[in-house]
Design a protein around this nucleic acid. Structure first.
Length: 204
DNA sequence: AAGTGGATTGGCT
DNA sequence: GCCAATCCACTTG
């Protein structure tokens, strides 16, 4: 099954707005094994030169960050420890900004996701983290630089998120003030958001 | 040429 | 909560 990709203009909005707007959209990856897709339920914004947590902090331009300096709407993939993470490039040409996709809710190709991820207790755990979702959807470092406006990797219209929560980003304790910026967005109460299992016992 | 440190995850205490 | 797994970009010599 194929969905209609969002047009390139969608990615022209400011990065913080884009991070919100991506919630509820569908992230789709087509491979020879089949199509896997999920609703985006968690994102984080990384805003170039002034964001110490961003790889492009201080306009650092290297082979890895090169795609961030290019046009919006392309994929920035990179390897973290043993996992691949995927970002949506934003900010427009010359502005190295991006939105990290941190979690999706499985929508299509769930059997395929299970075969890639191995057995999980709950379907909500299949893609409830930035490294999990790339494995579940089959996104790899080979997807670096791909436009998100056409197969095999693209984002399509989805649903309206019920309620959006905002908070500081995850896993950047050594980034000075930047660690407290409220640049993480997620669907309130959605069990597919990263860390949901951990937080389930301590809600307010 | 070698060392360092992650935008993580899963398993064990 | 702690820690190993395991890889690569980037820095330093």
């Amino acid at each position: 099954m194929t969905f209609e990709p969002l047009h390139a203009g969608f990615y022209e909005q400011p990065t913080l707005e884009l991070a919100r707007a991506l919630l509820g959209k569908r992230l789709v990856k087509e491979t020879p094994e089949g199509t896997a897709a999920g609703w985006i339920v968690e994102t984080e914004a990384y805003i170039g030169p002034m964001d110490r947590a961003a790889h492009s902090y201080n306009n650092r331009r290297t082979a890895r960050t090169e795609v961030m300096f290019g046009p919006s709407g392309h994929a920035y993939t990179y390897v973290m420890h043993t996992h691949c993470l995927v970002n949506v490039v934003s900010g427009g040409e010359g502005n190295p900004e991006a939105v990290l996709i941190r979690a999706v809710e499985p929508f299509e190709g769930i059997g395929l996701m299970i075969s890639r991820r191995g057995p999980v207790k709950q379907a909500s755990e299949l893609a409830s983290g930035p490294g999990k979702l790339t494995k579940a959807l089959g996104i790899t470092p080979a997807d670096y630089g791909l436009p998100l406006t056409a197969p095999p990797l693209y984002i399509a219209e989805g649903r309206e998120p019920t309620e959006i929560s905002v908070g500081p980003r995850i896993g950047i304790p050594n980034s000075g003030e930047a660690k407290d910026y409220p640049w993480r967005f997620w669907e309130a109460g959605n069990p597919c958001v990263s860390g949901s299992r951990r937080l389930r016992t301590a809600p307010g």
